[in-house]
C-alpha cells in the first residue's frame, strides 16, 4: 500500500507492506537513522519520535497508521543550523555517553518542555521514564533538560 508521511516537514511517499513498522519507514525511506530501536516490547524508548506533536514509540506504530500524519524525528530538532536547547543541554551537561538512547530521550524531553516549560526534576524523570539509558544513570539527562528549560526562559525574557 502507498503511504505518505510528512517527516520533519518533508512529504515522504513509499509503497510499503501494511505490517511495516513506522521506525523502519523513518530509517529506510528518508534514511533518517537517528531514530533507533532497542527492544521489541515498547519498553526502551530508543525509537521515540513525535507523531502530530505527541511523543510516541515508533516501534509500536505501523507506518500505515501514520499515513497522512506528521512525524518529527531527532533530525528535525535543529532548525536553520541552530541546535534546539535540548540538544545544547545534552552536550553541555554530558547527558549522553554511547548516544544510542539520546534521540529518544531528547524527543521525549522536547515534548515535555513544549507542554511544561518549567518542569520539576520529578516531572522530568517521569517524562523520560519511558526510555532506558544504560550509560548515564539519568542524572545528567535531568540536568540537561533543566538547562534547556532555563535557557528557553532566558531567551523568552530577552525577547
Amino acid at each position: 500500500m502507498q503511504v505518505t508521511i510528512t517527516i520533519n516537514g518533508e512529504e515522504v511517499t513509499r509503497d510499503v507492506e501494511p505490517r511495516m513498522l513506522l521506525v523502519h519507514f523513518i530509517r529506510e525511506t528518508p534514511g533518517l537513522t537517528g531514530t533507533h530501536w532497542g527492544c521489541d516490547t515498547s519498553n526502551c524508548g530508543a525509537c521515540i519520535v513525535r507523531l502530530d506533536g505527541q511523543a510516541v514509540k515508533s516501534c509500536t506504530v505501523l507506518a500505515a497508521m501514520a499515513d497522512g500524519h506528521e512525524v518529527t524525528t531527532v533530525e528535525g530538532l535543529e532548525r536553520d543550523g541552530r541546535l534546539d536547547p535540548v540538544q545544547e543541554g545534552f552536550h553541555e551537561k554530558h547527558a549522553l555517553h554511547c548516544g544510542f538512547c539520546t534521540p529518544g530521550m531528547m524527543m521525549a524531553s522536547r515534548a515535555l518542555l513544549d507542554e511544561n516549560p518549567d518542569p520539576t526534576d520529578e516531572e522530568i524523570r517521569t517524562a523520560i521514564s519511558g526510555g532506558i539509558c544504560r550509560c548515564t544513570g539519568y542524572q545528567n539527562i535531568v540536568a540537561a533538560v533543566r538547562w534547556a528549560a532555563e535557557r528557553e526562559a532566558e531567551v523568552k525574557q530577552e525577547a
Binding site: 513498522l21 509500536t60 505501523l62
Partner: peptide, 26 residues
C-alpha cells in the same frame, strides 16, 4: 481492530498474534 496498538503490536511482533487483517480505528 487496532487502536493504540500497544498490546497488539508487541504480540504481533512476537508472532503470538497473527491477524490477517487490521482495521485501524485511530
Amino acid at each position: 481492530l487496532i487502536a493504540g496498538g500497544h498490546s497488539l503490536l508487541p504480540m504481533m511482533k512476537l508472532r503470538l498474534a497473527t491477524p490477517e487483517h487490521l482495521v485501524d480505528i485511530n
